[in-house]
Design a protein around this nucleic acid. Structure first.
Length: 760
DNA sequence: GGGTGTCCGGGATTG
DNA sequence: CCGGACACCC
């Protein structure tokens, strides 16, 4: 016990040892949040306040869940397999498998990832003769997902115009089709679990009695449905609700665009009668100048719960800022600085280059490639998303649930077996006519089409038959052979990588089986009969629990298939090598590095132009900047550029407002700092940057100046709109008009002979 | 069915 | 400018 709690600072200690009531922990960046969470669990168990089975710990990412498990097993000598620690989706999957009948799902229901969901919707629109110009699949998908994220079924969504009424109708059709095929999307996992627990009182009370301590990581990222889910699970408002230990940071809320609602933090305080609010403000990550920059920047936001990070580390190096003349020059500067750091002994993997949007990585990658510096780009395609893997998975899905039409369509003619569009049309007609799945409709198709289709069905049947008693990895091997996927890629020119990936899939199955405990002599639960044994009798109030171990509630194949959907796996690009780390600011959340470059700090890019209409948008961008800054331990570099190629056009942006919100005493400008206009110094960097001029000329803009005396790229000051940049000039002489980017005020078209403009 | 050409649109992302 | 979606051709 002494051991468990020593080394905690007073705030952390207070949080870990809070009484069994709901509490909100405001955990600043780098304040030891995961440590507090895991130590809290260990302390609760060690002091006998709860058994491991009474703990429910929820995270958003698999990575966070794994991290928690690892650190917990280092703290406590217990088997963590029996504990309910996982993502919202993973935990819901487990509950739905165990109680599938009550939830109205087949035991082998399958999970659509977002790609599957999109093709599912396209198919739905086509089958119902909907014009996908008027109702774009992506829009419908967003509509459905946001409704589900708010806990709403189609019948509950309010629609006030024809378009929305149609969307609601399509949402309803979508759900019905999912139900027929035995598939669920990600949001459905949560909504279905929520509905299951809402209407099934014995089940609800069983889990409420079981989970006396619920811990939630990254609470600021919860959406409305997740919050309702937690309320239900905890029995909030009841006599003896569970103690919910919510850890979050409102300043790091950067996912409003996908439904996260920071308001859940104050709702939580209110609705869970939170008496204990603890702020973790001691930062163990960043040097002083970096932390001061973050603090001063975020103070510009209005809606905050209020928090100020402090550090015992000294000031450290100042934050370095560079204005480049072009995006190419910016990239080269970054590389020079990174080389210096490496020369001084930094590991490449301890240097991160961050950007607001993926498109910005190109120029940087090009420069790194030319310089021969190894780098790794985050966020690429992941293992289970690769086409060949999805094909193999589709065969396995059909064996486990033949009514999954998505899987059927993916592989019915891949590798090619002479089942073309015409045959499929007949099959789809038959399926629609009888209201059954494609697989089930095969016997209704006659002729040549019918016999090729019947051959395909026989292929799936025999794969299932031949593998029914095989361990999972061997099952995968057999499927790869029988489906002729392997031979198909052997004859393909560039199939070598794909074959390697397919072999990796067998490894993945082997690994999965050993990690999840399927390799031991688990009771064979492949048939529906044994699963039924787990279910409560209809009139019984005894609930058989969804034990935490997977083998108790699903077959190895079903489990592996949900694993493939719920954990898409790493993107394996250049993994393992000591390489510079390139990623968006969003994907940097939760990570930390010795040195961090934040690039493209320009109005329109960061803050992004789509966010600048509303104050709340800019505040989220500012939080994003806050996240970016607080990734750095020792060194922080900020850069922006006067010109930038975007969408095939040269853009001229003003420097980001965020740069002007940072504290001067923590900064070191490596390029001359041009004061904002209201400070007096009006000299433009353009006048002192011959390189920029040369660059511009090289880009074919030879006509730098015209008779009207203005040129593209000129910084100007306008009485009403303030500081701006001339982006384009049309016409000439006295009739010339200029497109001027005024940042917050947007793009204006002004007549140069009329508008009162000063050069700055 | 796969390969090539044309058109369009382009913010971030986990499960 | 670049990638995805789709039409068209062999």
């Amino acid at each position: 016990m002494q051991n468990l709690l020593h080394n905690l600072n007073p705030e952390q200690l207070a949080a870990v040892t809070l009484p069994s009531q709901s509490a909100l922990i405001l955990a600043g960046a780098g304040s030891g949040k995961t440590r507090v969470l895991t130590t809290r669990i260990a302390w609760l168990i060690q002091t006998g306040q709860v058994s491991p089975g009474g703990i429910l710990a929820v995270t958003f990412t698999n990575k966070a869940a794994k991290e928690m498990l690892t650190r917990l097993s280092a703290l406590l000598p217990i088997n963590t397999r029996g504990m309910w620690i996982g993502t919202f989706h993973g935990l819901c999957n487990r509950l739905l498998r165990a109680h599938h009948r009550d939830a109205g799902l087949p035991q082998t229901f399958q999970i659509l990832d977002s790609g599957d969901q999109l093709s599912f919707i396209k198919r739905l629109l086509k089958a119902n003769n909907i014009d996908d110009e008027k109702f774009p699949p992506r829009t419908l998908m967003y509509f459905i997902n946001s409704a589900k994220d708010q806990g709403l079924r189609a019948a509950q969504v309010e629609a006030h115009d024809d378009f929305n009424r149609k969307m609601v109708a399509l949402y309803d059709l979508y759900d019905a089709q999912c139900q027929r095929e035995g598939v669920v999307d990600f949001a459905e996992l949560l909504l279905r679990t929520y509905e299951l627990l809402s209407r099934n009182q014995p089940l609800r009370e069983h889990y409420q009695a079981r989970f006396r301590h619920i811990l939630v990581d990254e609470f600021q990222d919860t959406n409305d449905l997740q919050y309702q889910w937690l309320k239900l699970m905890a029995g909030a408002g009841k006599q003896e609700p569970a103690a919910v230990f919510a850890v979050g940071d409102d300043d790091q809320s950067i996912y409003a665009f996908r439904g996260a609602n920071v308001g859940n933090m104050s709702a939580f305080e209110r609705e869970f009668q939170v008496r204990n609010l603890i702020k973790l403000e001691q930062n163990y990550r960043s040097h002083g100048h970096i932390l001061d920059s973050a603090n001063v920047l975020i103070a510009n936001n209005s809606k905050r719960l209020g928090k100020n990070l402090r550090t015992d580390a000294g000031h450290g190096e100042p934050v370095r800022i560079m204005e480049a003349s072009s995006d190419i020059q910016e990239a080269n500067w970054i590389i020079d600085e990174a080389k210096n750091l490496i020369r001084e002994g930094s590991l490449r993997s301890e240097i991160a280059i961050l950007y607001r949007s993926n498109a910005q990585s190109r120029v940087i990658e090009h420069a790194l490639f030319t310089a021969g510096i190894p780098y790794r780009v985050y966020g690429g395609q992941r293992f289970f998303e690769r086409a060949e893997i999805k094909h193999a998975i589709a065969y396995l899905q059909l064996m486990d649930n033949p009514h999954n039409d998505s899987a059927f369509l993916r592989v019915v003619n891949f590798p090619a077996r002479g089942i073309g569009a015409r045959s499929m049309e007949q099959l789809q007609d038959a399926a629609r006519q009888h209201g059954i799945s494609l697989y089930a409709a095969v016997p209704h198709v006659g002729g040549k089409a019918g016999s090729s289709l019947a051959n395909f069905v026989r292929l799936i049947e025999s794969a299932r038959f031949e593998t029914q008693n095989l361990p999972l990895p061997e099952m995968v091997q057999v499927v790869l052979d029988l489906s002729t996927l392997l031979t198909h890629y052997q004859t393909e020119k560039e199939g070598a990588d794909r074959i390697e990936n397919l072999e990796q899939l067998i490894n993945a199955a082997t690994l999965f089986v050993s990690e999840e405990g399927f390799s031991r002599e688990a009771p064979a639960l492949t048939g529906p009969a044994s699963a039924a044994a787990l279910l409560p009798a209809a009139d019984s109030v005894t609930v058989i629990d969804a034990d935490a171990a997977l083998p108790a509630v699903m077959s190895p194949l079903s489990a592996f298939l949900s694993h493939a959907s719920l954990e898409a796996g790493d993107n394996q690009a250049q993994a393992g090598q000591d390489a510079l780390q390139l990623m968006t600011v969003h994907s940097a959340k939760g990570l930390e590095f010795d040195a961090v470059f934040i690039t493209g700090l320009e109005e329109g890019l960061f803050p992004h132009e789509n966010s600048m209409q509303e104050a709340s948008g800019v505040e989220e961008e500012r939080r994003l900047m806050y996240v970016a800054i607080t990734r750095a331990r020792q060194r922080l570099y900020l850069s922006f550029s006067q010109t930038r190629m975007l969408h095939g056009q040269t853009r001229y942006n003003m420097r980001s407002r965020f740069l002007d919100e940072l504290p001067d005493e923590s900064l070191k400008w490596l390029s001359p700092k041009i004061q904002p206009s209201w400070f007096g110094n009006k000299k433009s960097a353009w006048d002192e940057a011959p390189a920029a001029e040369a660059n511009r000329l090289a880009q074919g803009m030879s006509k730098a100046q015209d008779s009207h005396g203005w040129r593209i790229g000129q910084n100007v000051l306008h009485a009403k709109f303030g500081e701006g940049v001339i982006v384009n000039i049309e016409g000439s002489g006295s009739s010339a008009r200029a497109h001027i980017n005024f940042g917050q005020f947007g793009m204006k078209l002004l007549d140069l002979s009329i508008a009162k403009l000063d050069k700055i």
